[in-house]
Each structure stands twice: as structure tokens, then as C-alpha cells.
Design a protein around this nucleic acid. Structure first.
Length: 373
DNA sequence: GACACGTGGCT
DNA sequence: TAGCCAAGTGT
């Protein structure tokens, strides 16, 4: 800590800034309301925190609104059908979060009488709630003085104290430094304030140091290295994997779909049947005997740890065709994960151009990531 | 500790 | 444009 700034000075300066510049969010109780005694709804804080894991505020907003309209409290969510929750989560990514969300809601109802645990330790027992989320919910929803360390806080603290150790090695050091700054007064507002600071001022590139409430004590800023911190260990290169997806359309317009296995990539989500996604070129493995043709496009998609190039095959099935083992038929499939949505849009575009019909605009999620050959 | 696990926006 | 980045967790 800088000799001239006490821990109380840090929180005072930040909270004063937060009182004037707090971002407005659908799940948040603003500083003025909080001072007036309004308490946040733990269900909404928990839901928002899970959605915000590795996900931007902009991406979360509409999903949060739809979830809370459909399932206004934890009891309603606990009573929801699995497929309904997975469908509502489609497009948001990291689908294990949705599966754990449902397990977590059911655990709150079954094991905690429908009320969220109010402590970090209690929250940590819920599936999908790790160190960050437990501390965030405890502090934001229950005003417990927990140390909240997310990517924003790591960046802010690394700069404030000029921590040169690369992430993720620096995590313990950053957590210890963050702990020294966490106040006993207004811990919930403080937690949100540090994250707002990281999101709006102490940004990854070109931070706005001139208007930062912590510019004076910031060591990285004083030494001109703020934009280089935090340092990070180099990431592994992403290999390319390939696969084939089979899109079968029955004469009545229904498509052949499957629910993917509960665990693993896109677990529990809807998808078109296909081959495994491997580094080597895949062998043909159609899910049903039919005249499969190549529509001449390719789906390009990048996951966290690999690039994917999917070839497509399409077929028309007779009206009488029954779904094959493990599959079912669905009209105008909605709620697909993005890679499946891209494949669907590409095939629809191909059909439209073949028949000369005007096509409804495909999802925005398809963009430049499909390619004509 | 290392790796699996999505997505869209920005540079 | 290829890569980086965003309120991480589970195994």
C-alpha cells in the first residue's frame, strides 16, 4: 500500500466516485437506494452473477430480462423444465452454467427452504458458484465484507500496486492485496465499485487514468506501465478441428435434431446430428439413409480452445420418415447454440437461392462465419 | 495446475 | 484479420 494512502482512503475515494458514477443495471440496487435501505434480491444477484461469468454486461441484459420475466423467483426456476432453461440460455454460451443454475435453484429450494445462503461458505456449496460468485453474492446481496476478485479487480489491483507477476500465477498475490482494501462499511457497493472502475476507467487498453479516483496512489500510472499490466502467460494456440453436420428436412418442413449429451461441449443443448469434431478429416456418418448432398458451404466457428470447420450435408426425407434413434423432428428449430444456428442459416439460405424464394433474414449470429465454397 | 468450456465485439 | 477480451467454474 502506498505510504500516504490508508485502506480507508482507498475505499472512501472509490465509494465517493461510485456514488456519482455507478452504472445502472437491471439487477442492481444503486448507491442512493441502498442508503435508503433497499435490499437487493439475492435471487436476481445470483442469477446475474452466473450470467456475467466470462460474459459482457451487454450480452447478459436481454437474457436476464427474459429469465426474470419467465422465472421471477428461485422457486419458479427450481420448478422449470430442464429443456426450457437450456432453450432460454441458448446463445449465451458456457452451457454448464445453465445446467448448474437449475441444480442450484433446486438445491436452494430443497436444502435451504427456498432462501439463499447468506454467507460465502454457504453459497460455495451451490453448483456453479465458485470463489468469485460466492464472494460477490455474499457482499452484493447480503453486504458481507468478502473479498471479491474478478478479472476487473485483478487488472485494477495489478496496476495499483504494479504487480509484475503474470496471471494466473499472480492470483493469490492480487487477492491478498485486494483483501487489504476491502472495507467493512458498504462492502456491497465497494465490490460493485471496483468492478465498475475496471469496466469503465481502468480498462484493458488505454485506461482513462486522468479521471480515475485512484490515479494518485496508482504505482503503474506513476511509472507509465499501466497499459502493460496485468501481464499474462501466453495462451496455447487453437488447433483446427473438422466435422460434418447432417441437416435432414422432412417433407412437412420438420428437421431432424438431437439433444446433445448432458456433459461436454454444448452439453444438454439442441443440435443437428453429425460426426465427432476431430483434427483429422471426418468419415461420413449419416444418421439416416437418404440422398445426402453437399450444399457447398462451410460453417466456421471458434470455441474457447479450438477452431471448427464444419462441412454440411442436406437431405429431404419423405413425409413418412420417423426420427432415428436418439433424434426427433422439430419444425423451425429455435433456441440453437450458435454453431448450430450458423449451419441452419446456411442451409436455409441455400434452399432459398435454389428455389428463388425470398429468405427471412438469418440470425445476426451467422455473420461472416459461414462461407460459400 | 492444466485444461475444458461459448460467444460476440473490438482492434 | 487473427487475436484478445468479458463479473469463472468444474474436473
Amino acid at each position: 500500500m502506498r505510504q500516504d494512502w490508508t485502506s480507508a482512503d482507498f475505499s472512501a475515494a472509490l465509494l465517493e466516485w461510485y456514488d456519482r458514477h455507478a452504472r445502472v443495471m437491471p439487477w442492481r440496487i444503486g448507491p442512493a437506494e441502498r442508503k435508503a435501505g433497499v435490499r437487493p434480491d439475492p435471487y436476481r444477484i445470483w442469477l446475474s452473477e452466473v450470467m456475467l461469468q466470462q460474459t459482457t454486461v451487454v450480452a447478459v441484459r436481454d437474457y436476464f430480462r427474459r429469465f426474470t420475466e419467465r422465472w421471477p423467483d428461485v422457486a419458479a426456476l427450481a420448478a422449470a423444465e430442464d429443456a426450457a432453461v437450456m432453450a432460454e440460455w441458448a446463445g449465451l454460451g458456457y452451457y454448464a452454467r445453465a445446467r448448474n443454475l437449475l441444480k442450484g435453484a433446486r438445491a436452494v429450494v430443497a436444502e435451504h427452504g427456498g432462501r439463499f445462503p447468506a454467507t460465502r461458505e454457504g453459497l460455495l456449496t451451490l453448483p456453479g458458484v465458485g470463489p468469485y460468485t460466492a464472494a460477490a453474492v455474499a457482499s452484493i446481496a447480503f453486504d458481507a465484507p468478502e473479498v471479491v476478485v474478478d478479472g476487473n479487480v485483478e487488472r485494477v489491483i495489478a496496476r495499483l500496486f504494479r504487480v509484475e507477476t503474470p496471471l494466473p500465477l499472480a492470483k493469490p498475490e492480487l487477492t491478498a492485496l485486494a483483501a487489504r482494501l476491502t472495507p467493512a462499511q458498504r462492502p456491497g457497493d465497494y465490490a460493485q465499485a471496483v468492478m465498475d472502475l475496471g469496466a469503465t476507467i481502468c480498462t484493458p487498453r488505454s485506461p482513462a487514468c486522468g479521471i480515475c479516483p485512484w490515479r494518485d496512489p496508482c504505482i503503474a500510472r506513476a511509472e507509465g506501465v499501466q497499459a502493460e499490466l496485468p501481464r499474462k502467460l501466453p495462451k496455447a494456440a487453437k488447433p483446427v478441428r473438422r466435422g460434418i453436420l447432417y441437416l435432414a428436412r422432412r417433407a412437412d418442413g420438420a428437421w431432424l435434431l438431437e439433444t446433445r449429451p448432458e456433459s461436454g461441449l454444448l452439453g444438454g443443448m439442441l443440435g443437428f446430428p453429425g460426426t465427432d469434431w476431430t483434427v483429422e478429416a471426418p468419415e461420413e456418418a449419416p444418421p439416416v439413409a437418404a440422398e445426402w448432398r453437399d450444399p457447398g458451404g462451410e460453417v466456421l466457428h471458434t470455441f474457447t480452445h479450438f477452431h471448427l470447420r464444419l462441412a454440411l450435408r442436406v437431405a429431404e426425407l419423405p413425409e413418412t420418415a420417423a426420427p432415428t434413434q436418439g433424434c426427433f423432428m422439430m419444425l423451425s428449430p429455435a433456441h440453437l447454440p450458435t454453431v448450430m444456428r450458423k449451419a441452419y442459416d446456411l442451409v436455409r439460405a441455400d434452399q432459398a437461392s435454389a428455389t428463388g424464394e425470398v429468405q427471412a433474414s438469418p440470425s445476426k449470429r451467422s455473420g461472416k462465419t459461414t462461407r460459400r465454397r
